[in-house]
Design a protein around this nucleic acid. Structure first.
Length: 963
RNA sequence: GCGAGGGUUGCCCAGCCCGGUCAAAGGCGCCGGACUUAAGAUCCGGUUUCGAAGGAAUUCGAGGGUUCGAAUCCCUCCCCUCGCACCA
């Protein structure tokens, strides 16, 4: 078959996809080769695959193809994620013909209207999008082993998930507890982010409640800094706020609390039982003496208008040594007559109690900050700045003083959780949740924090579990390496996670069937399921997937016979499953978008270390950035969106791949632009035409023919491009890889042809096609099949590898001499405006070359300086005749050499060609390019030199005469 | 606020770890030229400023500092993006 005149991606791509599929080229089976198991997170099917998927999946495919060509047995599988609520929600929206959804899914997801209207149940949605997703991934040429695909609602997969959750439960890693959620009292339901009218940004903050006591009752103070309880001098009560006396009951106690009315309402939503007793005025509890439960000291309650009933409990601790507001408020009361509150004592006698040492301040940070900022009183806006400054400095640099007893010396940044836990244990403190800002539901009702009780949690805060994860990360490659610290931070930050839901698709918790397993929790170790999945197409029934089977296949527990007996599956089949697992596991690389770091990837690690032996823990994680569309964020539910299939339809698979791979590196975000992909089209086109030209002219390998300087040069260059490409792919830098394998190499090829290179054209193509195959596999397959001396699939060929024997420093230095000389000539022509009639190039005379060599030699020995060089040169009788010029030349040479970087120095000192001969070889090139007669001469020889230019010649820098 | 990443020549971005050939790779855009009946594609050149001999001057978020020498190292500041959870 003859290659088409013009590059027609659609035809070529379809053709090769069919051939790969028919020939099962990417169906991986264990064999004697080393294996490489690469996975990317399966897509969630509430829409079609888009440009974001295109990036992550294509990166995965490039690595898979690269490793495969490097001789690894590569497994790149794929499945579909459908568990959770969004698909259920989408089905409802479609069933209700919700206008925006219908618009977005027909316009951006490209679903024909009649089909879209039929997608009114979760099952139909899953069916439709799984078919579309597979079609899309095949259309872009991913080298996926499709025999292993599955959907997370498959009954067989549910068996696998049940097995996993039972295992975690047995290991005590799933525990029951309560957790706070945003709650609308009117709807009597949790509010999700899109149900929120105001306060979308709000987070749930955990305050510590300190139980001050008075006359058998409790005045709880909410604080974010429980350690300051040691420094409390008084409490603040707002005389204008309504307070409530109430009975508060938990499993452990029954107490009487006094809190603001609003706080009382909030308490009714917590996991405490509260019973209203009576309303009281703030006035009633001002001027009383309460007991600090931590220090047992008695402090007075004082009036303060800044206390808000809606904030915390409405009772506030005052720590004037460290809180500017408290200090200011207290100072304001100094001269006030408080007899109306029944307070007669002199407040000036209240002593500030410092409890934190911080380098920036002395005894009383709040006092210093107030002076530093020049704050007048508590209503001065500068009070806020002073507060922030004190808090920040204390949090980062502060340690607790002696008066904090056993906590003395603890860093402020570490004290909160520690102390709060102790307070809870001693029953003098509790946790109280509150929003960081008010939250209002869509229905207009202010939301509260509600405790959901009896919730199942994955016990991620378990320190032993975390330690294993840290160890796992330590032994993994994190690509790029800078993110390692981020992973460790996130492990540190991770708390217990609710792992069960009432709504959505998924698997029921095997030990509590009222609950569904949360959808991120069922996607943590499924990479092992790909290995099992291959066997399930045979006649294995769902019921046969008993725990003993998974125990044996995935963990090596129990005997084959036992597993066979329990499951009723042939022992031989179970044995192959086990062998396959042993062969493919662990995961060599999981490549993913950066949005999954704090969730999926973390859980992926946690569950692996919990379930598998250390030898089966993941080996590497790679991270890539997002994709935007012409500068706009994509959105599945609102648009804009570019689907994978639309990109392939409009531009072709190879061009789309090339574009997305070259537009951004690693964690950088990519912006998909029309103008960008248009130019990618032209690039691929150039490659096609170079190949076509080579094939049409029926050239064959010139490897055995005699080589010119330029041939040796391109061979050498090619090796560098190969080396750089392989290096870049090693750390998943696809942009850098393409930069070398395509753009820079293309420029090299252009120079090669311009310089008249011909002999190695076929050999260049041979290497180039293999080099490009992971990126643009279809066009490479097509070219490969048309080349004279090739056979088989380029997808399975050997990837080019760096071969130092082709590195040719002489040729590179020679070409550099020619190139530099040529651009110097061009610049002279440009600056002078001369229309060249004749060009003479004078290479440096013998003595200069000799001096240069000696200078290089001295540099190598490490003692190059002008003095030594001149001395050494002048000892040489051959140099004597040039005695006047030597010192000046020597100085210049020394400067030049000193400024050289290592590889430049290596290249220059390795140069052993005769410059005159080198330029002579390129004389045709100069004549063609400059368009005039060219002579090459050497300084000092009898030659045409009307303007005495020859004397400016230096090694690697010939003098130039133009007329 | 906390954590992570980033600000380079019209744009996208490489270089920064390991200071010197860095006016700074590559791509895009734009300008000019060649080819062509023409357009496109392709190829060549230019794209901070000055320059009638291959040169020089000023640049790498801002300001300081270290150094013979800084886009690269140190300090301070400004600005941008992302994550902060029970949602996939």
């Amino acid at each position: 078959m003859i290659m088409e005149q013009n590059y027609k991606p659609a035809i070529i791509e379809k053709k090769w996809q069919n051939i790969w599929s028919q020939d099962k080229v990417f169906e991986a089976e264990p064999d004697s080769r080393d294996k490489y198991f690469i996975t990317i997170p399966y897509p969630y099917l509430n829409g079609n695959l888009h440009a974001g998927h295109t990036r992550t999946f294509t990166i995965g495919d490039v690595i898979a193809r690269h490793k495969r060509m490097q001789g690894y047995n590569v497994l790149y599988p794929m499945g579909f994620h459908v568990t959770g609520t969004p698909i259920v929600g989408l089905a409802e929206l479609i069933a209700n013909r919700e206008p925006q959804t219908m618009e977005v899914y027909s316009k951006f997801h490209g679903i024909p209207k009649d089909i879209l209207e039929g997608l009114d149940s979760p099952e139909k949605i899953v069916e439709y999008f799984s078919v579309e997703a597979e079609k899309a991934m095949r259309s872009i040429g991913y080298s996926i082993d499709w025999r292993r695909k599955f959907t997370t609602t498959d009954e067989t997969y549910k068996k696998f998930i049940e097995w996993q959750y039972n295992l975690l439960y047995e290991k005590g890693l799933i525990v029951k507890g309560s957790h706070p959620v945003k709650w609308c009292p009117n709807d009597d339901n949790p509010v999700e982010d899109h149900d929120i009218l105001r306060g979308e940004e709000a987070t749930i903050v955990d305050y510590t409640l300190i139980k001050f006591t008075y006359d058998g009752m409790i005045l709880p103070c909410a604080t974010l800094r429980p350690e300051t309880t040691f420094g409390v001098t008084n409490l603040w009560i707002n005389p204008d706020v309504e307070y409530v006396k109430a009975k508060v009951k938990t499993d452990e106690y029954e107490e009487t609390w006094i809190v603001s009315e609003e706080a009382y309402n909030k308490l009714t939503y917590t996991d405490r039982k509260v019973e209203f007793i009576e309303k009281i005025s703030g006035l009633d509890i001002i001027g009383i003496k309460v007991k600090n439960p931590l220090t047992d000291s008695e402090v007075i309650t004082l009036p303060a208008s800044f206390v808000r009933g809606g904030n915390g409990s409405g009772v506030v601790m005052s720590v004037p040594a460290h809180a500017p507001y408290d200090y200011l408020a207290l100072k304001d009361l100094h001269d006030k007559d408080l007899s109306e509150y029944g307070i007669t004592e002199n407040l000036q006698n209240i002593q500030l109690i410092p409890l934190i040492d911080v380098p920036e301040y002395g005894e009383y940070p709040a006092v210093e900050a107030v002076e530093e900022f020049g704050v007048h009183d508590q209503n001065d806006p500068k009070a806020e700045s002073a507060t922030k400054m004190v808090y920040r400095r204390e949090f980062h640099g502060g340690t607790l003083k002696e008066n904090t007893g056993k906590y003395a010396g603890t860093k402020v940044s570490k004290i909160k959780d520690l102390l709060t836990q102790d307070l809870i244990d001693e029953k003098i403190g509790e946790i109280f949740y509150e929003f960081s800002e008010p939250v209002v539901c869509r229905c207009g009702t202010p939301c509260v924090v509600n405790m959901v009780k009896g919730q199942w949690f994955l016990n991620y805060s378990n320190p032993e579990w975390k330690d294993k994860v840290y160890r796992c990360i330590e032994n993994m490659d994190i690509i790029p390496e800078e993110l390692r610290v981020e992973f460790n931070n996130k492990v540190d930050w991770l708390k217990d996670k609710a792992c069960a839901r009432k709504k959505g698709l998924g698997t029921r918790l095997p030990f509590d069937k009222d609950w569904l397993i949360e959808s991120l929790g069922d996607s943590t170790v499924y990479m092992s399921y790909y290995i099992v999945a291959k066997f399930l197409s045979e006649d294995i029934k769902t019921e046969q997937l008993v725990p003993e089977l998974f125990d044996h296949v995935l963990l090596g527990k129990g005997s084959v016979q036992d597993a066979a007996e329990r499951s009723g599956i042939d022992a031989s089949v179970i044995e192959s499953m086990r062998e396959d697992f042993n062969y493919w596991y662990p995961v060599n690389l999981r490549s993913s978008g950066k949005d999954l770091i704090p969730n999926h990837l973390l859980f992926f690690l946690f569950h692996h270390v919990a379930i598998f032996k250390e030898e089966n823990w993941p080996r590497a994680i790679a991270i890539n950035g997002f994709v935007s569309l012409e500068g706009q964020k994509m959105s599945k539910s609102k648009g804009p969106l570019l689907t994978l299939s639309e990109a392939v339809k409009d531009y072709g698979a190879d061009i789309s791949r090339m574009y997305i791979l070259s537009s951004a590196e690693q964690t950088q975000d990519a912006d998909w632009k029309n103008s960008g992909i248009e130019s990618a089209r032209r690039q691929v086109d150039r490659f096609y035409h170079f190949a076509k030209d080579t094939i049409d002219t029926k050239c064959t390998s010139g490897a055995c023919k005699e080589k010119q300087l330029i041939d040796r040069w391109i061979q050498s260059r090619l090796q560098q491009r190969i080396s750089e490409t392989n290096e870049a792919l090693k750390s998943i830098r696809t942009r850098q890889a393409l930069q070398n394998s395509f753009f820079l190499l293309l420029n090299d090829v252009k120079w090669y042809q311009r310089r008249g290179g011909k002999t190695l054209q076929y050999d260049i193509l041979d290497t180039w096609v293999r080099l490009m195959a992971p990126f643009t596999p279809h066009i490479c397959e097509e070219i490969w099949s048309e080349m004279e001396e090739t056979q088989g699939y380029v997808s399975l060929e050997k990837y080019p590898e760096y071969d130092p024997q082709f590195i040719d420093r002489d040729a590179e230095a020679g070409e550099e001499l020619i190139g530099n000389t040529f651009s110097d000539v061009e610049e002279i022509i440009k600056v002078t405006g001369i229309k060249p009639q004749k060009l003479v190039l004078y290479t440096a005379s013998q003595w200069k070359s000799e001096a240069f060599k000696q200078a290089l030699e001295l540099q190598r020995q490490g003692d190059l300086n002008p003095g030594i060089l001149i001395k050494k040169l002048m000892q040489d009788p051959e140099m004597r005749p040039y005695g006047k010029e030597v010192p000046k030349f020597a100085k210049k040479v020394v400067d030049d050499i000193k400024a050289m970087k290592e590889d430049k120095f290596e290249m220059v000192s390795g140069f052993d060609l005769d410059e005159k001969e080198t330029l002579k070889e390129a004389i045709n090139f100069f004549e063609k390019e400059i368009g005039c007669e060219v002579q090459i001469a050497r300084e000092g020889e009898e030659t045409y030199d009307p303007e005495k230019k020859a004397r400016f010649a230096a090694p690697m820098r010939p003098a130039i005469y133009l007329e």
